[in-house]
């Protein structure tokens, strides 16, 4: 039965997740600015707080106080609803993210399938923003984002299915338990799946070298050109929350989740996840951007066939 205890746990988990999303996004924006600055041999934010640590807080206050410019030509409903579609799936994905053995809102028995389904809703928000703005840059950015995200969805899902085949379960906690002896990234059958996952995940969250949806040198700001103030902040929040989610999934599926010696499990989970995010930032500020045809060619001509081949080989090795 849906007990009172469940209800209390649900509300507590919800409040903690919302707090975590806000703090994590603010931290990641500051961290990204610092990492990029140091890669480019400059300081980045330095004025607000210790090494600019409160810069993000100042930015949030600024964005709250900014005027909301509504383009008269925009498709009002679609334009207004798009920020919801960008953030709500990210919040919902947290239901199955295991911070530790106990700290998981709900260990759904179809966890992996649920997270695949819910994270792919974000593309609808991006496309709604691109279409609803009634702006040529936004439309092009939205089209590119949709094409890119759905193309890289396939290698992403296939690499996750490979993990499911080895772990023999769709539950996130059971996948973590299956890695007690050996992290899946070091599992001989799954190293390639891990590599495919991290490439496809970079494309899923529209980060350089796969950031053509908002290539600022050609499309101004891509799909969110016409958004300002808090609505723009929602897209930003959704983007950084998605970065956290794909890294948390990578940690859970390939790096042993919250398992580790000495330190408490949640510390291990956060260290691994933020480690992956820092790696993604390092990639972002090192590689140049690809062209749209190179991007699609890479997804369909190389990554998808390789993922299928990997799946077939892993299946054969497991059956023996």
């Amino acid at each position: 039965m849906f007990t009172f205890l469940n209800l209390i746990f649900m509300v507590m988990a919800g409040v903690m997740v919302l707090g975590f999303i806000a703090v994590s996004a603010m931290f990641l924006i500051w961290w990204e600015r610092k990492v990029s600055a140091h890669i480019q041999n400059r300081y980045g934010p330095m004025r607000v707080g210790w090494h600019g640590a409160l810069q993000s807080v100042a930015d949030v206050i600024k964005l709250l106080l900014k005027e909301d410019i509504r383009p008269t030509k925009a498709d009002a409903w679609v334009w207004w609803l798009a920020p919801f579609f960008a953030v709500v799936p990210s919040v919902m994905a947290f239901v199955v993210i295991p911070f530790s053995k106990e700290l998981i809102p709900r260990d759904l028995n179809i966890g992996v399938l649920y997270i695949m389904a819910i994270t792919s809703v974000c593309v609808i928000g991006i496309f709604m923003a691109g279409w609803g703005s009634n702006n040529k840059y936004s439309l092009l950015g939205g089209m590119r984002a949709a094409a890119q995200i759905i193309s890289y969805e396939l290698p992403l899902i296939l690499s996750m299915i490979t993990v499911v085949m080895v772990a023999n379960s769709l539950s996130m906690q059971k996948i973590v338990e299956a890695q007690s002896r050996c992290w899946f990234i070091f599992h001989p059958n799954l190293a390639l799946a891990g590599l495919i996952y991290i490439i496809a995940a970079t494309a899923e969250v529209n980060r350089t070298p796969f950031d053509i949806p908002e290539a600022e040198s050609e499309l101004v700001a891509g799909f969110h050109t016409e958004y300002s103030g808090m609505k723009f902040a929602m897209f930003f929040l959704g983007e950084y929350t998605n970065v956290f989610i794909v890294s948390a999934i990578a940690t859970t599926l390939f790096l042993g989740g919250w398992k580790g010696p000495l330190l408490p499990p949640i510390a291990w989970f956060l260290i691994k996840t933020y480690g992956i995010i820092t790696f993604l930032m390092w990639v972002r500020w090192t590689f140049p951007r690809l062209r749209v045809d190179q991007l699609m060619g890479f997804a369909w001509k190389f990554l998808t066939p390789v993922s299928f081949l990997n799946l077939a080989i892993v299946g054969l090795l497991l059956l023996k």
Binding site: G14, F84, V87, V95, R106, L108, N109
Partner: peptide, 17 residues
């Protein structure tokens, strides 16, 4: 209970935005 959580997080997301 499982989908109660999913539904609650859906409402929570809408509330947040």
């Amino acid at each position: 209970t499982d989908y109660g959580f999913v539904g609650f997080f859906f409402l929570l997301g809408i509330f947040f935005v």
